[in-house]
Design a protein around this nucleic acid. Structure first.
Lengths: 143, 143
DNA sequence: AGTATACCCCTATTCCCCACTGGGGTTTGC
DNA sequence: GCAAACCCCAGTGGGGAATAGGGGTATACT
């Protein structure tokens, strides 16, 4: 498990979509990328992953784009991380396989469980709220 | 923060040393490496890090080797991880620096704090005990 | 004193994965 | 029909982790 750049990007994209929820018109990759400053072609792949994960729906062709199809307050951070960091492109066999390492493995599970707990506590909605308040704070700084 | 191969190796080496605690004679890299199946030259570097971290003491020259200089029940997993994954060879600036990403940053701190909590709960002694009981279980399986 | 042993330090080399790019296809609205 | 926009798959490159190597230094033992 890791919180890498892909997850960061995906969260930003989801936040952008959540800002328009519920949507009538789909949002395009190009717009999301520009708004959140994410490389376009890279974001394309991440959105494909999010689509397969059931978070967004795509609409092809002209005037197409992406729609958020889950309620922002029901999407936890854990869901997103799990979708992006799990399977599909993950081949790394992290640790050596010895009898002794099984001990560390057990504790590693404990750690992972704890992380999952924390991540499950935050929803996309929470993030969206925090972003807004943070922005106000930034404005206050500048005044 | 990550639990990578270096940490795994270091923990195995410390466990090996803890198995002989308190030591009269130092343990040599070659022996630890053979016992725990760790590349010798790599382990050498990790032990140097552990030495600088104050976990072990080295004795140079013939009949030299390493001595554990902290009590196994006082060394927490957090201490070890912190020693190996922190500073000294860590240049990665993980995430992009935008206003929005600060939000994720905050939650990331929350996650890290939680992980630290868990890691602080385990000492080298705990690991050593677990390993022993695990071995007994393995024997039971084979009978 | 000399020699073998074993740590010490610094520097390649190898390998792999993440972040990112590119090309060519297919679907859809106008 | 044509342009907009998603889709899929295959590549590139930069960096870091794991590892190997060379040459140095300290120490025990004879």
């Amino acid at each position: 498990m890791e919180l890498s750049c892909r997850t960061e990007y995906a969260l930003l994209a989801l936040l952008e979509l959540a800002g328009h929820y519920p949507q009538q018109e789909p949002l395009q990759i190009k717009q999301i990328a520009a708004q959140q400053q994410i490389p376009e072609r890279y974001l394309e792949q991440l959105l494909a992953t999010l689509r397969r994960g059931g978070f967004v729906q795509s609409q092809r062709g002209a005037k197409g784009g992406y729609l958020l199809i889950q309620e922002p307050w029901k999407i936890t951070l854990f869901d997103v991380v799990n979708c992006l960091e799990g399977t599909e492109h993950q081949k790394k066999e992290p640790l050596v396989e010895t009898v002794e390492s099984a001990v560390v493995e057990e504790i590693w599970q404990d750690v992972c469980g704890s992380v999952r707990e924390v991540l499950k506590r935050y929803t996309l909605q929470d993030l969206s709220d925090k972003r807004d308040s943070r922005r106000q704070m930034n404005i206050m700084y500048y005044i």
